[in-house]
Amino acid sequence: MSLIVNGTSVAPPDDPRVSLLDHLREGLHLTGTKKGCNQGACGACTVLVDGERILSCLALAVQYDGRHITTVEGLAQDDALHPLQAAFIEHDGFQCGYCTPGQICSAIGMAAEVERGVPSHVTADLRADAALTREEIQERMSGNLCRCGAHNGIVAAIQATFVVEAQA
């Protein structure tokens, strides 16, 4: 049994009670992923599993045997930040920074969902592909809270990264 975390194969915890979040932080010392509410309400623990965003606090690590997990530590290529990480700096997408790893992982997962054609609660026409409007981003990112209120910068960073890309 093994999990693949940021491309490296690692052993699962011995105790099945250990959440994926605790295994990342305390077992593997990947402390980029944050523990906010630890009950699925805040999104700070968001990671990508096979490219899809999930909450690592509600995930038992043993359930993710054989799956590819990407945390915020796995996004940069050597010293080059992921474009969304750079955009968060450019657009002031954070203040204290605690929710930021979850916001960034969530937004990358969200962009893939939009690319795939997944509709949202605010998509007017379920038969058409949704555009990444401000309203769509706000709804799709509603699972990630920011206590500092940096939402305007977060939305701007997401738009700058993924809307420009989509139009290119």
Partner: peptide
């Protein structure tokens, strides 16, 4: 729920 929870 949220998108993350719907994915799980």
């Amino acid at each position: 729920a949220s998108a993350q929870i719907r994915n799980m």
